[in-house]
Design a protein around this nucleic acid. Structure first.
Length: 208
DNA sequence: CCATAGATCGGCT
DNA sequence: GCCGATCTATGGC
């Protein structure tokens, strides 16, 4: 179900190619105590440097430094004084870019995720970027972690039925809000946002 | 289901 | 100072 660990070349492409291609993949988190957590990615968003909504827009700082590094690393940031969000760094062309992982369908380690999320119902464990990080125990300590090779966070190729992905505007931003850079598995109850945000234009079916 | 308020703090204007 | 790539609780339909 998880499939093989995706190689560096998967991440070293333009963010608008990687973001939709991550939908349907399996995000794996190996906890220090040996427990494996895994979710099927159902929602992503693209951010790149020529984009006013992106953390990289105003140039490199201590916080966003990972976005300016090589592809295939985790960019984790802290926001609203209490939440973390996790991204995957992609090619630096055009400019520092990353994919925000917004939601996932729990596959493995549901009990541990539930503990991290105060016993919330399964549908609410990973529905939203802050919730996802809480369920997977991801915080700034994992900023910069390499997804390729040995490491506690990685992405498996996934198997089975390819997802049907639709494109919409991104959620929760004001600047450059009209860019159609959010990619959702339209039929998934584990995707975030209002119900209407699950409709959109279909992307071209990707071979997998 | 939808709308809104409050929490809470690091980063940057 | 201001404001977030957010979440939860609460109140209304």
């Amino acid at each position: 179900v998880i499939g093989r660990r995706l190689p560096r070349s998967f991440y070293g492409r333009p963010v608008l190619d990687v973001a939709p291609d991550l939908v349907g993949r399996v995000l794996v988190r190996d906890l220090p105590d040996g427990i494996r957590l895994a979710v099927r990615v159902v929602e992503t968003e693209a951010y790149r440097q020529d984009d006013a909504a992106s953390h990289s827009y105003r140039g490199r700082t201590a916080r966003n430094a990972t976005m300016f590094g090589p592809p295939g690393h985790l960019y984790v940031y802290f926001t609203y004084g209490m939440h973390h969000c996790m991204n995957v760094v992609t090619s630096g062309d055009p400019g520092a870019s990353a994919v925000l992982i917004r939601a996932g369908e729990p596959l493995l380690g549901l009990e541990a995720m539930r503990r991290h999320r105060s016993g919330r119902p399964i549908r609410d464990l990973c529905r939203g970027p802050g919730r996802l990080c809480q369920a997977l125990a991801v915080d700034r300590d994992l900023d910069g972690a390499d997804l390729v090779g040995v490491g506690p966070v990685w992405v498996g190729a996934g198997r089975g039925i390819p997802p049907s992905v639709v494109v919409t505007r991104r959620i929760g931003i004001r600047r450059d809000a009209d860019r159609p850079w959010r990619f959702v598995e339209s039929s998934s109850p584990f995707a975030s946002g209002p119900a209407g945000a699950r409709a959109g234009s279909p992307t071209r079916p990707s071979r997998r």
